[in-house]
Structures are given as structure tokens and as C-alpha cells.
Amino acid sequence: MRITVCIPVRFCVCWAVYFIDAGEPTVYQREVFPNAPLEFVAAEVRFPYSPKLGRHESFDVLVDALRDVFPIPDREEQRERAVGPQGVQAAEPQVTYRLLAKDRLSSVTVGHSRLNLEVTDYQEYPEFRQLIRRSLEPLDTLGVVVGVERIGLRFIDEVRVPSVKAASDWRGYIADEFLGPLVLSDEGTVENLEGIVKMQTHAETHLVLRYAALDGAGVVGGGPLRRRKPPSSGPFFVIDTDSVWQGPEIMDFDVESVLDVFDQLHEPVGTIFHRTITDRLKNEVLRSNP
């Protein structure tokens, strides 16, 4: 039996949700931070190659269906290059179509084998989920997608703390478990610190957590979407969570089934984020006014 109890703990921005499942209490405190470090969220659905999906006629259907949300169309060509014994060789360019929101804080991109919904001003999952639905429904109408190979949900946080000037200064703001190699600071100055964790979360889903202490303008930016606020420079800590479904067989394309998978992929993401950071970071930075 599963009981959900919502208790307002803090005015308007914070509530605690208790899931009581078969007598095993699991507390997951969810909070919307005024100064959240979330810079990029992407939802991706990959399909078997569909020649019609990259054509202009299919794009027209998407344009019409999403005009109220993404009124600005754009065409992109991605060129891949391989470096080998013969030198740099260019592959055939892949054409994708991107629809942008007027504020350029979100877009949906469609190619022959994938659809990507990307936002830089993510607010809440239900709202994002609805955008995913709006993006997928025209594909359902077109009938050009025969199945689903992979579904991914990615969140990229860039944590910045004014007092942090070097990698070793992240102690106290990032959970110690993710700063283990800083013990080597006695031997020299740690300039960069990175880690990758890949774990299985359900039978056919896994999660890749990449984290790194870096320096610069950030890992998000330089493309057609703009960031919520201009990027600053200096040290930042990246928390990159990629939650993925990839089954042994191709799943039939059905909007509701795909959304159910996204719900499943979303489940562990918040907990992972909270376990990466400390209460000190929440109190000093994330809960402050931006």
C-alpha cells in the first residue's frame, strides 16, 4: 500500500512528501530553490531511422502543431568528423530542424532518428512533462515513428559559490563522498576533479552521474538556446545526471507509454541531486535571492 502525505513545511516553496511503502518509510524532501543551479534539462527520444522524420513536410506538421509554444523555426546541419590514419574526414551532414521559443529558453529539435526537447529555464516536472507530450503528439499524428529505442532525461546543474576560489574550497558545499580525491591536496594543488558513476535503477533503466569541479563559463551555452542569466566565470561544480531507458527490444511508439517511462526516469533525479550537495549550500546559496 502506498500513502502520500503532503505537509506544507515552508511558505509556498517547500513541501515534504512521505512515501510509505509496505511499512518502509522513505523520505524525499523536494524543494524549489529561488537560486537553483539548474542550467539545462533535456528530454530525448531516439527512434529507428525514419527518412520521413527529417523531411520538410514532417517539419511543417511540427511547426503548425507547436506554433503557440515554439514559433521560431531553424535548420541545422551537424557535421561529424573522424580523425584517422587518412587524416580528418568529414561525414555526410545530418540535417535537423529546431523550433525555438521566442525567449530562446527552450526548443525542440527533430532529426531522422531522434527528438530532443531542451530547456534552460526548467521550473517543475509536470510543466516539462506537458511540453514533452506536446512535442511527441505531432509525431504520433504523422505516423512516421515505428518504435522507440532509447529515452533519456538529463539534468545539468552548475553550482557556483562566490567564496569558492579553488577545487579544495568545495568542501562543505558538496557532499564529502564526491570530493574524496581532495585528500591529495596535501601533495599538491588539485586543479580539476571529476567523477562518473553509472548505476542501474530499474530493469531497463540506468543513471549516469557525472560530476566535476571546473573553472570557466560553464558547460551550457554557446548554442541556439540562451541561458537564464548571463554566464559568469570562475570555479563551478557540475552535477550532470542522465537517466536513461534502453530496452532489449524496440518499444512500440505510444505517447502515454513514453511519458510513463519519463516519469520513471525522473524519480531518482531529485534525490541524487540532494545527496550530492550539503545543507550549507542550500542555506547559504540556493535559498538566497539570485
Binding site: F40, E76, I156, G222
Partner: peptide
């Protein structure tokens, strides 16, 4: 990785 080909990620 999800959105590995994104033009948004630097």
C-alpha cells in the same frame, strides 16, 4: 548520453 549532439552543450 542524452542530448549528446546538442548544440547547446559547450
Amino acid at each position: 548520453l542524452t542530448a549528446s549532439g546538442s548544440a547547446v552543450l559547450r
